[in-house]
Design a protein around this nucleic acid. Structure first.
Length: 341
DNA sequence: GCAAGGAACCGCCAAA
DNA sequence: CTTTTGGCGGTTCCTT
């Protein structure tokens, strides 16, 4: 994250955050980050740190008409992207319809032009592919939803794709990974603008908001998997519902009706990740969410997420995070908004 | 921390 | 002939 702070402008103009949404965008892509800015703004005025709102927030549509989000919820944006002026932070949502937006030259041109005018340009999930379509990720480091990292590398050959990062910022362009990471990115923006304590306060408030839907990451994974509606989409749904069961390569291959050898080969070609590593990641993410939500003992978490016992859970955490599960828990308790990779 | 056993991964080749 | 699929076996990594 660039350390560029908002200059205290004489007129104390609020920072204008614009989210570009489209039909079939992920609702969490859209709502999560905007919620961060809205809460930050309220926190600052509630605590007497600002008289005027720190952020003004606007959702604009890529096309005319209401945005029917990937969960069926309809939101109406007052304006389309054509009418946007003076955006300070411009965010691009991801979701199922991203490819349609990618093929729209008017939006791509608008994004390319806006990029040089705005202070920050961010993408959530597959929104990164829209930025790539606008030619904005060439020669940069970037990330996107893990299942689309290969696609991103294809459409933006000189883009250095970081499949591991939660979000990646180069200069003023930030791309975030899966849906919920858009919230982490937005928190980083708030921190950049108003300092760590404000970001932390917002994050703490948001923990409640995040807890409510339950297993947020898996939830969004469910939506994405359902929407993908192909063989591996169905496999992911099945795997998410069977985390505690045997998810060996043999079992997965059987689920897909393929031989192990063929399954492994097709899977790796599609996802750029081996089946074993993918399952490990699914389980680790699930365990992290449960620990963040303080749902049960580590033993329960280990069992529910398919690690079997605490030892295996601990090893998995050590390997990917360099922390033990209990260290992770206390870290999250100390700073709930901080996402740990 | 170590050794044994097992699972995952992948190159290679053959059949469909 | 090319593409898709599957079996075999060696190596590596993980679990116990």
């Amino acid at each position: 994250v660039s350390r560029r702070r908002l200059t205290e402008s004489a007129d104390d103009r609020p920072h204008h955050v614009v989210m570009l949404g489209f039909t079939d965008a992920q609702i969490l892509d859209v709502a999560g980050p905007l919620e961060v800015f809205s809460r930050a703004s309220r926190w600052l005025t509630d605590h007497g740190l600002r008289d005027a709102p720190a952020y003004t927030i606007e959702l604009v549509a890529a096309e005319a008409g209401p945005l029917v989000m990937s969960n069926g919820l309809a939101i109406s944006a007052a304006r389309t992207f054509r009418e946007v002026e003076n955006a300070d932070t411009l965010l691009v949502a991801g979701g199922i319809g991203y490819d349609r937006v990618c093929r729209d030259p008017e939006i791509c041109n608008w994004l390319a032009r806006s990029s040089s005018k705005v202070q920050r340009l961010g993408s959530i999930c597959t929104g990164a592919l829209i930025l790539a379509a606008a030619g904005l990720l060439e020669g940069r480091r970037a990330t996107t939803h893990w299942a689309y990292c290969n696609t991103l590398a294809e459409v933006a050959p000189s883009c250095e794709v970081d499949a591991e990062a939660i979000f990646v910022c180069t200069d003023h362009i930030c791309t975030s990974a899966g849906v919920t990471t858009g919230i982490d990115m937005a928190l980083a923006f708030v921190e950049e603008d108003h300092g760590k304590s404000v970001a932390l306060a917002v994050a703490q408030e948001l923990v409640l908001y995040l807890r409510r839907p339950g297993h947020q990451t898996q939830f969004s994974r469910h939506l994405a998997a359902e929407a993908r509606d192909d063989q591996f989409g169905r496999l992911e749904l099945w795997a998410l519902d069977h985390l505690q069961d045997n998810l060996s390569v043999t079992a997965l291959a059987e689920q897909c009706g393929m031989s192990e050898r063929h399954f492994g080969r097709v899977f790796t070609a599609t996802f750029g990740s081996t089946p074993g590593a993918w399952i490990a990641r699914l389980r680790l993410e699930a365990a992290k969410r449960r620990i963040e939500q303080n749902a049960g003992s580590l033993k329960d978490v280990a069992r529910q997420c398919g690690f079997g016992d605490e030892q295996r859970l601990r090893r998995a955490f050590q390997k990917s995070l360099g922390l033990t599960p209990s260290e992770y828990r206390s870290l999250v308790a100390a700073s709930p908004g901080e996402a740990i990779q």
